[in-house]
Design a binder for these strands. Sequence first.
DNA 1: ACCATATGTTGTCAACGTCTACTTCACGAT
DNA 2: ATCGTGAAGTAGACGTTGACAACATATGGT
Lengths: 199, 199
Amino acid sequence: MTTTAPYHHGNLRAELLAAAERALRDRGADALSLRALARELAVSHAAPAKHFADRQALLDALAIEGFARLTHAFQVIVERADEPVRERIRALVAGYLAFAQENPALLALMFAHKGEPDASVEVIAAGRQAMAMTVGLVAEGQAAGEIAAGDPHRIATVAFATVHGIATLGAGGLLEGEPTAVIAEHALVLLWDGIAVGR
Amino acid sequence: MTTTAPYHHGNLRAELLAAAERALRDRGADALSLRALARELAVSHAAPAKHFADRQALLDALAIEGFARLTHAFQVIVERADEPVRERIRALVAGYLAFAQENPALLALMFAHKGEPDASVEVIAAGRQAMAMTVGLVAEGQAAGEIAAGDPHRIATVAFATVHGIATLGAGGLLEGEPTAVIAEHALVLLWDGIAVGR
DNA sequence: ACCATATGTTGTCAACGTCTACTTCACGAT
DNA sequence: ATCGTGAAGTAGACGTTGACAACATATGGT
């Protein structure tokens, strides 16, 4: 009755991704090894190559998956048409910051095209898609008379960059322990009211 | 007259850092190998270990050096007491974005404490020092009546995060090619005036 | 003159990514 | 029914790397 292990795993690709994300969370991207993943899944060291051309391809897949999750979460929030725009913006910010805090290594991976000349086009596309979710909300806010006129894409970009900056600084320990959510709330107030005197 | 190579290199540490920064710029942090650096400097493969305990120590040193350069550049700008605050802020932003554009891989390294649990304390300290340079300028702006009241540290943090976010998104190719300087100028205007309607 | 120490060298090891050749297996055409 | 073809997994090898240990050489203080 010994159930012999089948020659084919059957679900390797998905399980590799899952194990990789765990490893990423626990030990960071640098410590992620294809061979270790293969061992963990009781599969030969060369098996992962059948699903991911090389190590970078696996990391790219993780990044894309991360962006996809983010995009979906954003969409759900944006579509709450009954909520005021500012409330939804707040929810977007909170969602992003929570994601960043729970997945710091993954977040770094998603935006880590640093020096590599040939950054994956697909990863970048996935990232742009996630960012694009916020543009419509800004436009909606303008239509509702809550947000001043101006290219909504530009406004959304600046806002996203601000939150993203807060998230990465927080992950890097440069915010002296202050919660990113608190900083972000200040940012929202500053951006909403402006910081100039008088006017 | 053959000048025999001396047993001791004499300046290995500094040259390692220089070569490492070149390699970082050209091929990215992942492709940086201690052995390759040793080869480049015509030194044995174990020589770098005498100056940097491990690979990460070298990368940390690079990051600290990067922050030091940034801090110095910031200080020079902040100390131009004759220039109006807003002009100096503009210069700070331009300086940071230029640094980011010229050293994308180094910038990534400087803030890349991602998943690694034991991020170098010294790197973080160097980063905080750089960020701290901007606080005084905000306070000065408040004293001059150009910037509204509020914790200057908080305002500076939000502003820095915004610019940092723009820089990293730009480096990641997520700004659809628009120059980071243009986005940052919009950000400054938005932050200065606020985006709320009416008020 | 001497020696402690910093700096470099050589040799070794385990781990890793990647490549090639081979095996197993599911499945559709015949 | 069977055949063969391609996808999925295995086994082994190669070259590179980071790290370590043992040894060699230079340097500077006493």
